[in-house]
Write a protein that binds this DNA or RNA. Structure first.
Lengths: 191, 191
DNA sequence: GTCTATATCTAGATAGAC
DNA sequence: GTCTATCTAGATATAGAC
């Protein structure tokens, strides 16, 4: 008798595969191999490959938003933290699992499609809430555009390994919360 | 004896499939069905599925750049035309075949990877050349960022069917070439 | 919960007739 | 250049023993 593989481990590996190979390109066989299971054993934990999508995105959303500073207390801090987390993830992996899935899931997998939509709407809403606290107008459109710019910049990481467009997108995003700090400069901005 | 299916028709249908389903999701069987051939017959026209990628992107690049106004004569006109073409294509199809392939091809298909890299570098260079003619600095980074913003905006078309982020990205891009014309306003800008 | 074994389907690609 | 027929490999998913 072996001890069960933690669900979280499976989801984390599934995310890696979806991010790298997309929905179609990721296989249950590869996933099983990565977590040390036989492919068939995955189906006792998840009903289908499609079901993994919502698990992956729920985990990603949770990691992105957990312990975020309260926007009503210090919206600039919340904004910087959220943008920093998104950018760090994109830079670490060179691509966004959400974007890969957004392009990769079709109407053949409606639950997965819905999960992707919920994911990005949730991220946008979190950003919108912060910008609204900062009286940045219009908050929803600015949030959508900011996220689109960060995601779009991954094009250059994926094709050229060039992360400078992402750095500039981050800079523009942070600029919304006031002047960007230079190196070594420790600005104390009003909350 | 039937008459041969034009190569161009096959490439155009392949593009449709790659754009919608990505590299992995697109199948030679579907492609054959769309052009009225048996799957096996495709291999007398193209050596492999991978080889279709460069054909698709070469055609797309050609359509994007053919007959573009000379940047040295009127760079604003060239810029508006190119941005307009890119935006129109993205809006018509709701997604970019190049971005889907950028995310979708792996090191398992190195020729396809190279084709994607060449495609985006070529688009960037065309944009860079125009911006340089307009003395917009820095031209290369501005071109990369502009393209990234347009591509990133397709996220919202793909997930929500919302093309307003793309419209705003276009507006920002056109703003680089001077004030944006209002509806009905027929500005004559200096070349 | 994991395993072996298997079912079912579809993928990309090849051989040879016409 | 297109066809019929076939190969080989891989995919998702299920059944039943331990």
């Amino acid at each position: 008798m072996r001890e069960p593989v933690p669900l979280r481990d499976i989801v984390i590996e599934a995310r890696e595969l979806f991010r790298e190979y997309g929905y179609e390109g990721a296989s249950m066989r590869d996933l099983a191999g990565r977590v040390g299971l036989r492919p068939q054993s995955l189906y006792t934990r998840f009903p289908s490959k499609e079901a993994l999508v919502s698990e992956v995105l729920a985990l990603t959303l949770e990691e992105m938003l957990e312990g975020l500073p309260d926007p009503d207390r210090n919206w600039r801090n919340a904004w910087r933290t959220l943008i920093g987390r998104i950018a760090q993830t994109l830079e670490n992996h060179g691509r966004c699992v959400g974007l890969h899935l957004a392009y990769g899931v079709t109407s053949a997998t409606p639950e997965a499609q819905k999960a992707v939509r919920v994911f990005f709407k949730s991220v946008q809403e979190a950003m919108t809430r912060i910008l609204r606290s900062g009286k940045i107008a219009p908050p929803a459109a600015t949030a959508a555009d900011t996220l689109a710019q960060l995601e779009g910049a991954t094009l250059w990481i994926a094709t050229e390994g060039d992360n400078r467009p992402l750095k500039r997108a981050v800079r523009r995003a942070l600029h919304l919360a006031g002047p960007v700090r230079r190196c070594g400069e420790k600005a104390e901005l009003p909350s």
